Deep mutational scan, measured.
Amino acid sequence: KKYKVVEVKENKDGTVELVVENENGEKKKITLSKEELDKLKAGDTVELK
């Protein structure tokens, strides 16, 4: 499934919390490390299994 990044929030521990949404409007929260996030920004599309 493809999800669009709608919100990006940095946590104090250096991880980043993303809120992503698919075309049905379903939202998910995922947490990434700073390194994983470096290639993402709001409006990008991510694929989740």
Rank of each mutant, 00 (worst) to 15 (best):
K1E: 12
K1V: 14
K1H: 13
K1Y: 07
K1C: 15
K1R: 09
K1S: 08
K1F: 07
K2H: 06
K2C: 15
K2P: 06
K2M: 11
K2L: 12
K2I: 07
K2R: 06
K2S: 06
K2E: 06
Y3N: 01
Y3G: 01
Y3F: 07
K4T: 12
K4G: 02
K4L: 13
K4D: 02
K4H: 06
K4M: 07
K4Q: 07
V5M: 02
V5G: 00
V5R: 00
V5S: 00
V5L: 07
V5N: 00
V6R: 03
V6P: 00
E7L: 08
E7I: 08
E7H: 06
E7C: 15
V8G: 01
V8N: 01
V8C: 14
V8I: 13
V8E: 04
V8F: 04
V8W: 09
K9M: 08
K9N: 09
K9Y: 10
K9H: 10
K9E: 02
K9T: 10
E10G: 04
E10A: 09
E10W: 07
E10K: 07
E10R: 05
E10C: 15
E10V: 08
E10Q: 08
E10H: 14
E10P: 09
N11G: 07
N11S: 09
N11C: 09
N11I: 07
K12Q: 13
K12F: 10
K12A: 08
K12P: 13
D13I: 03
D13H: 05
G14E: 02
G14N: 06
G14Q: 01
G14H: 04
G14R: 02
G14S: 03
G14D: 04
G14M: 01
T15I: 07
T15R: 07
T15D: 05
T15P: 01
T15W: 11
T15A: 04
V16F: 13
V16K: 07
V16I: 10
V16R: 08
V16Y: 13
V16C: 10
V16G: 10
V16M: 11
V16W: 12
E17H: 08
E17D: 13
E17S: 08
E17W: 10
L18W: 03
L18Q: 00
L18F: 04
L18A: 05
L18M: 08
L18H: 00
V19Y: 07
V19W: 12
V19T: 12
V19N: 03
V19R: 05
V20G: 00
V20P: 00
V20W: 03
V20L: 10
V20H: 01
V20Q: 00
E21G: 01
E21N: 01
E21L: 09
E21D: 02
E21W: 06
N22H: 06
N22T: 10
N22E: 07
N22P: 01
N22I: 03
N22K: 05
N22Y: 03
E23N: 04
E23H: 07
E23C: 15
E23L: 06
E23P: 05
E23I: 06
E23K: 05
E23R: 04
E23V: 08
N24T: 09
N24M: 13
G25R: 04
G25I: 00
G25W: 01
G25M: 03
G25C: 04
G25S: 02
G25V: 00
G25F: 05
G25H: 10
G25P: 00
G25T: 01
E26K: 04
E26Y: 10
E26R: 04
E26M: 07
E26Q: 08
E26L: 11
E26A: 07
E26I: 06
E26C: 14
K27G: 03
K27M: 12
K27S: 07
K27I: 11
K27E: 04
K28G: 06
K28P: 00
K28C: 15
K28T: 13
K28S: 11
K28R: 12
K28W: 11
K29I: 11
K29F: 14
K29M: 09
K29Y: 13
K29R: 12
K29S: 09
K29G: 09
K29W: 13
I30L: 12
I30Q: 01
I30Y: 11
I30V: 13
I30N: 00
I30S: 01
T31A: 04
T31L: 07
T31G: 03
T31I: 10
T31E: 05
T31H: 13
T31Q: 09
T31N: 08
T31P: 05
T31C: 14
T31F: 07
L32A: 07
L32G: 15
L32W: 13
S33P: 14
S33T: 08
S33Y: 13
S33A: 14
S33D: 12
S33F: 12
S33H: 14
K34S: 11
K34T: 09
K34R: 11
K34V: 11
K34A: 11
E35P: 13
E35M: 10
E35I: 13
E35H: 14
E35A: 14
E35Y: 11
E35R: 09
E35W: 15
E35L: 13
E35G: 14
E35C: 14
E36T: 13
E36D: 12
E36W: 15
E36M: 12
L37E: 04
L37M: 11
L37I: 14
L37D: 05
L37C: 15
D38F: 07
D38A: 07
D38Q: 08
D38V: 10
D38S: 10
D38P: 15
K39S: 14
K39T: 14
K39I: 10
K39D: 15
K39G: 15
K39P: 14
K39A: 05
L40N: 04
L40R: 02
L40C: 10
L40K: 04
L40Q: 01
L40P: 14
L40V: 15
K41D: 04
K41R: 09
K41L: 06
K41G: 08
K41F: 04
A42L: 13
A42F: 08
A42M: 11
A42S: 07
A42H: 10
G43R: 01
G43Y: 03
G43W: 03
G43P: 02
G43E: 04
G43H: 02
G43S: 03
G43I: 02
D44L: 03
D44S: 03
D44R: 01
D44F: 02
D44I: 03
D44A: 02
D44N: 04
T45I: 13
T45G: 03
T45D: 13
T45M: 12
T45R: 03
T45C: 15
V46T: 05
V46N: 06
V46G: 11
V46M: 08
E47C: 15
E47Q: 02
E47L: 05
E47R: 01
E47H: 06
E47D: 07
E47M: 04
E47K: 02
E47S: 06
L48H: 03
L48N: 02
L48G: 01
L48A: 03
L48R: 00
K49C: 15
K49L: 15
K49Q: 15
K49H: 15
K49R: 02
K49N: 15
K49E: 15
K49G: 15
K49T: 15
